[in-house]
Amino acid sequence: MESDSVPKGKMRTGYTTGTSATAGAKAGVLAILNQEKIGLIDITLPKKSKIQIKVEKCEFDNQSAHCYVIKDGGDDPDVTHGAEIHTNVSLTANVGKIEIDGGDGVGRVTKPGLGLEVGSAAINPTPKKMITENITEIAQDLLKKNGIKVLISVPKGKELAPKTDNPRLGILGGISILGTSGIVVPYSTASFAASIRQSIDVTIAMGNDTVVLTTGGRSEDYARSIITLPDHCFVQMGDFSGYTVQQCAKKGIKKAYVAGFIGKLTKMGMGVKQTHVKGSKVDMEFLADLAQKCNASDDTIQEIKKANTARHVFEIVSGKDLKGYFDLVCAQVYNQLRKHSEEKFDIDVIMFDFDGNTIGKYPR
Rank of each mutant, 00 (worst) to 15 (best):
S5E: 05
V6S: 10
G14K: 04
S20T: 13
A21Q: 05
G24P: 03
L30G: 02
A31F: 04
G39F: 03
G39W: 01
D42T: 12
P46K: 03
K50E: 14
K50A: 11
E59W: 07
S64D: 03
H66Y: 04
C67W: 00
V69W: 01
V69I: 14
G73I: 05
P77F: 06
T87F: 00
T92D: 01
G96E: 08
D101E: 14
G103F: 12
G103E: 09
V106Y: 04
G113A: 12
G115L: 12
A122F: 15
I123S: 14
P125Q: 12
I131M: 02
T132E: 02
T132H: 09
T136G: 07
D141I: 06
L142K: 04
L151Q: 15
K158I: 15
P162C: 13
K163V: 03
T164M: 13
R168A: 14
I171N: 08
L172N: 14
G174D: 11
I175Y: 06
I175F: 05
I177Y: 08
L178T: 14
A190K: 08
S191T: 13
Q198R: 11
N208H: 15
V211N: 03
R218F: 11
D221P: 05
Y222V: 06
T228A: 14
P230D: 11
P230I: 09
D231W: 08
D231I: 08
D239T: 10
G242A: 12
T244V: 09
V245P: 07
C248P: 05
K250A: 14
K254S: 15
K264V: 05
K273S: 15
Q274C: 07
H276L: 10
K278A: 09
M284R: 14
F286C: 04
A291D: 06
Q292W: 00
K293A: 03
C294Y: 01
S297Q: 05
I304L: 00
A307F: 00
A310H: 00
V313N: 02
F314N: 10
K320L: 02
K323R: 12
V329E: 01
C330M: 02
N335D: 12
Q336A: 04
L337G: 03
H340M: 07
S341M: 06
S341N: 03
E343M: 08
K344N: 13
I347H: 03
G356M: 10
T358V: 15
R364T: 15
R364N: 15
R364S: 15
